[in-house]
Design a protein around this nucleic acid. Sequence first.
DNA 1: TGCTAGGTGTAGCCATTGCTTTATTTCCCC
DNA 2: GGGGAAATAAAGCAATGGCTACACCTAGCA
Lengths: 141, 141
Amino acid sequence: MATPSMEDYLERIYKLIDEKGYARVSDIAEGLEVHPSSVTKMIQKLDKDHYLIYEKYRGLMLTPKGKKMGKRLVDRHLLLENFLTVIGVQEDNIYKDVEGIEHHLSWDSITCIETLLEYFRRDPNRMEDLANIRKEIDADS
Amino acid sequence: MATPSMEDYLERIYKLIDEKGYARVSDIAEGLEVHPSSVTKMIQKLDKDHYLIYEKYRGLMLTPKGKKMGKRLVDRHLLLENFLTVIGVQEDNIYKDVEGIEHHLSWDSITCIETLLEYFRRDPNRMEDLANIRKEIDADS
DNA sequence: TGCTAGGTGTAGCCATTGCTTTATTTCCCC
DNA sequence: GGGGAAATAAAGCAATGGCTACACCTAGCA
């Protein structure tokens, strides 16, 4: 299984390839705010675990396994952002919270949160009702 | 701010005092599955940060700050367990997931999850509706 | 009262995870 | 072919927490 940091790298790499068609060491480093040498090291680890194929100085390609995992990670991240947004968490807390929890939830939990979002999506009144309870509670305190 | 591990200890200590009136090193160690010496070290750290007052060989007392924090941590843990239960996560995944995420959510998020639970509590039909969507989705796949 | 066992405390060490720094290598383009 | 930007390698550091080994208290029993 991938460590939290490995997941962060993989997520970033997947996104870069998705957006620009390739992922360079320096872009990855910039996105994650680490030094390029850290990226190289992690890429080697990801290669060893067969998430990608790495050729020194040449670049990298995600394996099917890496693509699949990358997509899952990106989707998971978006899902959690949506979830926190829907339940009313302040914008400025969302990013950090998602960063914190995304690596620690089972796929079972992720699926359930997905279903919960679907629940709110199907009938906007539900979000309305939730917002009203929030207001009511706020008013109390 | 407390580190994740400090929170785990504080949570355990609060619970022990709540249940038995006192918290011994060996009980804390057993609960967290660590060696007693690790407990002593952490207790000293918690003392230094004024979560508790510690007298060697004599025992410890939570300060008001420690009590308040301990209660919050215990409540938070229960809240998250409830949350995962309500949205349909399997029993066996809940404990580990809560362990993983509890230290990484802002109090803003916690409050919002609390409100969400209140939402489901107020009208059992809502949980029912959610469960139906879950079934529907399960059936699809 | 004094001894001993079990609970506690101390010191030093180790493992993990990642990151940085520094020095070197490679590639690409002029 | 040479220069500069990008990438890599090697070594080391820092935070967090856990463990082992050994020393130390203290309560309870003889």
